[in-house]
Nucleic acid binder design. Structure first.
Length: 871
RNA sequence: GGGCGUAUAGCUCAGUUGGUUAGAGCACCUGCCUUACAAGCAGGGGGUCAGAAGUUCGAAUCUUCUUACGCCCACCA
């Protein structure tokens, strides 16, 4: 292409649209399954949660992975870079509920005439629909969102192989997830048990330790008087008086002087008159409250621990929905000295949410005279489900668990076998594993997720036999036990006495995400493919999910095959506000990535992401987009200019090759570029892509402002001579090299310029499949030092500085140039004197004089005198 | 309370194994239409490298302590 046909200005949006279509059409990023594992680079891409829209944080981290992928591709690797959508789980359910105004009721039958309609915003009415209808709605919605996500990712230039696309709810993922469950069961890592579990009352599901976060919560101390069976009194301080009916004991620290006389005695709870033992407990802190406290089932983890190692009864009064459930004093474990009075009090509480019950209880205690003074406000910290709004309760339910606790040390060992980038992120992993105190609860009492491939026999009373579950076999997968019949039964026996029932739960979304490498490799489905893709080379992810995604993936890979899931894990930082707090999604969405790409270009956003170090938080700063955008424009202009040097008056390109590079200053430049290639390749191999971009960027500006300025006249005016050819050959090779170095970061502008001439010259239609530059060894790169460039730079600075000080244009002629330097430096100067004369617009030749010592801070003493007139 | 990270110019960040006078971009000031680029170019001002002590001929860089901020974990009566 001749430069006269190029547009005057660079329009990124047109260029980007052109190339993203072309890449897909030409299959530039396609994975080739025939290439051996050793030449393949496998990425375990995070499947983004499909719940609305992507924000700048996604753009940031996904680009960083893409940069690595593109580099590896140019290194000649066959890239396996799939993209999946995480559409499982609560975020989708919540979104569907509000968008369509529907709610799942698993007892309803499927309605095939049901029409999905968007609900009016703000409408609180929710129509109940069957499980199947609900799941269909979820799939419709995620399908829509996924299309939007895909469009954004494509425009951002992420080099996925779109044919490897998957959704975590599809048959394949369900099959792998269920196969994983069965394999772990087979290997003895899975068990189910009924025990107190952290429970979210809003979503009515169990949650795992990893999904729990702590938040500040204001509460009130209630000082309540208890009486003992020896008619003594003491006061406990509690923030949860509503659990009084669930009190099973009163405890104080074994060495607490104040309560020695009470140990071994019993107390009566106020209002309910329940006789409970007064016991010693290490966890009671004499400094807190009154030092004596009630144990309820369950107020917190300490209660759970205490209950577990005691023989005391379990009194569950909080129901799955967070309300106080029906109980009767005088029956079973709910003993009371005065059941009638106790039931009367409790009748005022039953059906209330815990929060309401707390207030009611305060009133009742006050009337009763058991409340000392008024409740006192206090700040406390409570555990919340990360997506929930109400504090978690401990509720005894049956759940599936994976055995983590007995395998901690093996799992830490596995973590050590993986290269962490940055290295210190391993500490987070290690510390998390060390601190675990619960097995991994993988069952959730939800609907949109992967079901457990399990049924239970029902006995003659219709009660399930949990001790002898019926597991599906692998050939049945994926299976939905709610829809499909248990082996050995007829569908008519579902729910009948002596029949069967399907396990109603679904798996934690992490139970699926944690097999993402196996989902991609088709573990258990295509063994040959699995072996060629597993373990992966790279897992990119954010640091806050080291405790979930990274940990669970490492765990499962170890349990299934005693292998690490990947050899490297790259942890991206967060995008933060200037106050260093994580940018909230809502804030990030005020400016959408689409807007930013239109305003600044995809390359500009990628520039911003590429400048950030792995693991380091980055401040959201649109200034950086501007700089990236400017760089794109500069590459366009400079490239155009270089091409102009490489064609004759008719626009016909000149043929030059590396052997034409003969001028010492040109060789000094190529040598400098060689060093850049060497350094950047080293950095890239260490995943320090941000250093690569900074170095390439700085070198490129030096190329434009120094080297190009220095040799352009020679290249143009001496085009027929060897000296001109030397400059041309250097310019061509340098531009080609820069384009390749920029390509992983700025795929659009580099592809655009590549397409002008290099694509046909190098016989490689896409720069993204062109080889990464290697350190050259030919004659053109033999210049022993790069110092010539520095010498030339110094002279240029003196000339430019004088013109600037005199407020003259840079083309203003120089009358006289006097250079003093050592013999060695003057000889070096001779090598590029001609370029200086041309570039500085010097009349005549420089006057040189030899001095014995080099000036202290410069190479030369240089002085220029400007001409009187511009001519 | 435990662990990890960060602190360099007004702002955003580089600074490789300790080595002359600590760098870049943005912003600011002064100029300049130069075979591409005014979204450009040239020149300039601006820093006790968070603080203290130590190791060293030499410290932004290594050690110890302190401070501030961020994150993870623990503390939940």
């Amino acid at each position: 292409m001749a430069t006269k046909d190029l547009p005057k200005k660079y329009k990124s949006i047109d260029t980007e649209n052109k190339w993203l279509e072309s890449w897909e059409k030409e299959g530039v990023y396609k994975y080739d399954p025939e290439v051996p594992r050793s030449d393949t680079y496998v990425i375990d891409t995070p499947p983004p949660t499909v719940s609305g829209s992507l924000h700048v944080g996604h753009v940031f981290s996904y680009t960083q992975t893409d940069i690595v992928a593109r580099y590896q591709r140019m290194q000649g690797k066959n890239i396996f870079y799939p993209i999946g959508w995480d559409d499982n789980g609560l975020p989708t359910e919540r979104r569907v509920q509000t968008l369509y105004g529907i709610r799942c009721n698993p007892t309803l039958p499927y309605d095939d005439s049901f029409q999905l309609k968007k609900a009016k915003s703000g409408s609180k009415d929710q129509k109940e629909v069957s499980r199947k209808n609900f799941l269909e709605a979820c799939q419709t919605q995620t399908g829509e969102d996924e299309k939007k996500y895909e469009a954004l990712w494509r425009h951002l230039g992420l080099s996925f192989d779109w044919q490897q696309q998957y959704e975590t709810i599809n048959d394949h993922c369900r099959k792998i997830s269920q196969a994983s469950f069965l394999d772990l069961k087979e290997k003895g890592f899975v068990y189910s048990s009924k025990s107190p579990t952290m429970w979210d009352t809003t979503y009515q599901t169990a949650v795992a330790q990893a999904e729990v976060e702590e938040r500040d919560k204001s509460g009130h101390y209630h000082d309540i008087t208890f009486k003992t069976d020896t008619n003594e009194e003491f006061v406990i301080s509690t923030t949860r008086p509503e659990l009084l009916a669930a009190c099973i004991a009163v405890v104080a620290h074994p060495e607490d002087e104040r309560y020695q006389h009470l140990f071994g005695k019993h107390a009566y709870t106020p209002l309910f008159n329940v006789k409970v033992p007064i016991m010693k407990a290490e966890h009671a802190d004499p400094e807190k409250g009154t030092g004596i406290l009630m144990v309820c089932t369950f107020g917190d983890t300490a209660d759970v621990d205490f209950w577990k190692q005691s023989d005391l009864p379990l009194k569950q009064i909080i129901g799955r929905g967070g309300k106080l459930i029906e109980i009767t004093f005088g029956e079973d474990e709910f003993t009371s000295e005065d059941p009638e009075a106790a039931n009367k009090v409790y009748s005022e509480l039953v059906g209330l949410y815990a929060k309401q019950a707390k207030r009611k209880m305060a009133e009742l205690l006050k009337e009763d005279g058991s409340l000392v003074g008024e409740p006192r406000p206090t700040e406390q910290i409570a555990k919340f489900y990360e997506k929930g709004e109400q504090p978690l309760e401990f509720i005894s339910t049956r759940q599936w668990f994976i055995k983590i606790l007995e395998n901690k040390s093996s799992l830490i060992e596995q973590g050590k076998k993986i290269q962490w980038h940055p290295e210190h992120m391993f500490k987070r992993y290690e510390q998390w594993v060390e601190g675990l105190n619960q097995d991994w609860c993988i069952s959730r009492q939800r609907f949109f997720g992967v079901p457990f491939p399990v049924w239970y026999k029902l006995n003659e009373e219709g009660e399930p036999d949990y001790n002898n579950p019926i597991f599906a076999t692998e050939d049945m997968l994926p299976v939905d036990p709610q829809m499909e019949t248990a082996p050995g039964f007829e569908e008519s026996q579902r729910g009948q006495a002596n029949g069967f029932m399907g396990d109603p739960d679904v798996m934690d979304t992490w139970a699926t995400s944690s097999v993402s490498p196996q989902v991609s490799s088709h573990w258990k489905v295509d063994q040959k493919r699995h072996e060629s893709l597993f373990p992966a080379d790279l897992r990119p992810q954010a640091h806050e999910i080291i405790r979930t995604w990274a940990f669970y993936t490492i765990t499962k890979s170890w349990m299934h095959e005693k292998k690490v899931p990947w050899h490297n894990i790259a942890i991206s930082g967060w995008v933060v506000n200037p106050d260093r707090k994580k940018m909230s999604k809502s804030k990030g969405n005020t400016v959408t990535p689409e807007d930013l790409m239109t305003t600044y270009s995809s390359d500009a956003l990628r520039y911003w992401a590429g400048k950030a170090r792995l693991g380091q938080d980055t401040i959201y700063d649109e200034n950086v987009f501007k700089i990236g955008q400017r760089l794109g424009t500069k590459i366009f202009n400079a490239s155009k200019f270089v091409m102009m040097q490489l064609e004759d008056e008719n626009g016909t390109p000149c043929e030059v090759s590396l052997s034409d590079i003969t001028e010492p200053i040109d060789m000094a430049w190529t040598t400098k570029m060689n060093k850049l290639i060497e350094d950047t390749t080293k950095s890239f191999n260490k995943y320090d892509y941000n250093i690569v971009l900074s170095n390439v960027e700085a070198s490129f500006w030096e190329f434009c402002d120094l080297y190009l300025e220095l040799v352009k006249t020679r290249a143009y005016k001496q085009r027929e001579l060897p000296s001109g050819k030397s400059a041309q050959a250097t310019l061509e090779w340098t531009l080609k090299t820069f384009l390749k170095l920029f390509a992983p970061f700025l795929p659009y502008i580099s592809e655009e310029v590549w397409s002008w001439n290099f694509a046909s010259k190098e016989d490689q239609p896409s720069i993204h499949r062109a080889p990464w530059p290697v350190v050259e060894t030919g004659e053109a790169f033999k210049q022993p030092s790069t110092q010539l460039i520095d010498l030339a730079k110094e002279i240029m600075m003196v000339a430019r500085g004088e013109k600037s000080t005199q407020q003259k244009s840079l083309r203003w002629p120089i009358e006289k140039m006097e250079i003093s330097g050592t013999k060695e430096h003057l000889e070096a100067f001779k090598l590029f004197e001609g370029d200086i004369v041309l570039a500085a617009n010097l009349k005549g030749n420089p006057v040189t004089s030899e001095i014995s010592e080099k000036p202290s801070e410069t190479f030369f003493d240089a002085k220029v005198t400007l001409s009187e007139t511009k001519e």
